[in-house]
Amino acid sequence: MGDLGAGMVALSVALTLIGTAVATAWAQKVIGGAAIGAMAEKPELFGRGLVLMVIPETIILFGFVIGFLLLGLIPQVAAVP
């Protein structure tokens, strides 16, 4: 793989992380707002609210995994133990 190829892969990794991070942030903003709103009236919803709030974290986790696998395609990175 040439430098250009490696660069493209690195860019893809960055894009993957940016996309999934923004998606997670947006989703958490919405859910977090709703959770806080509900909790303001019913504090006993804390547990449920927390669970709902963190669900979108899966998105960036997938982004992380995909990014990690993509990184493996770059020979220079793969060479590092």
Partner: peptide
């Protein structure tokens, strides 16, 4: 999903 759970 389960894999994501583990990685979580």
């Amino acid at each position: 999903g389960l894999l994501a759970n583990i990685i979580s």
